[in-house]
């Protein structure tokens, strides 16, 4: 999910800034109105911000695949804070990670916000609400939201890379190839995180 500096061509990097900026602005407005109503939401947002920052920076080894990857944390933040406020939290975390932690990049900030922030939050919150409406328990709903939300982040990352590197003509084949490459590491990771108390 951390697309490095220079990986995407400039025009594709710019394209992803539009949805990232739009959702972040909506998130900031929602955050402002919610914290005016309930001041304690500020502290809760801070807690989720620190959690998403730490979770999404934590390299977790997957021994069977011999690789390391990051969980995302945004589905959990979306369940607790709402999907749009969770996008803001992801945007701030990704900015710090790009600036000081050599993870991601400033030119790919928009693309990273769309994959981790927008996809992770909207899919996570959507699956959670849908599961609850279907009558699933809180645990099962959280489990599914985290699992599917986590995989959706990598599905969108694969989309961004496929479009940026190979264009629209080869989109389907490249997306399947990239997402297929992510799955051996990300599948068990998404599953493992769901079974932990901080399951994102």
């Amino acid at each position: 999910m951390h697309l490095a500096e220079g990986v995407l061509p400039v025009e594709w990097a710019a394209v992803w800034f539009a949805p990232a900026a739009a959702t972040t602005v909506i998130g900031v407005r929602k955050l402002r109105s919610k914290t005016t109503q309930i001041p304690q939401r500020k502290a809760l947002t801070g807690i989720m911000g620190a959690s998403v920052f730490a979770i999404s920076l934590m390299p977790i080894p997957v021994p069977v695949a011999g690789s390391v990857s990051h969980p995302c944390g945004t589905p959990l933040a979306a369940i607790v804070l709402g999907p749009f406020v969770s996008v803001v939290v992801a945007a701030v975390s990704l900015l710090f990670q790009a600036l000081f932690f050599a993870h991601g990049g400033l030119s790919t900030w928009g693309a990273n916000i769309v994959s981790e922030g927008v996809a992770g939050s909207l899919v996570g919150a959507g699956v959670f609400l849908g599961s609850r409406r279907l009558g699933l328990s809180l645990f099962a709903s959280g489990f599914l939201a985290g699992f599917i939300g986590d995989l959706s982040v990598y599905a969108v990352t694969a989309l961004e890379l496929s479009l940026g590197l190979f264009g629209v003509s080869e989109l389907g084949r490249q997306w399947v190839s990239l997402f297929g490459a992510f799955l051996p590491v990300q599948g068990p990771l998404a599953l493992g995180r769901r079974c932990s108390p901080v399951g994102s």
């Binding site: 999910m1 951390h2 697309l3 490095a4 990986v7 390299p59 080894p61 011999g66 690789s67 390391v68 990857s69 990051h70 993870h103 990352t157 890379l161 590197l165 990239l178 490459a181 992510f182 590491v185 990300q186």
Partner: peptide, 12 residues
Amino acid sequence: YVGIDESIMEAR
């Protein structure tokens, strides 16, 4: 144990 950011994204 190379991260997938490097082993997949940057390699592709």
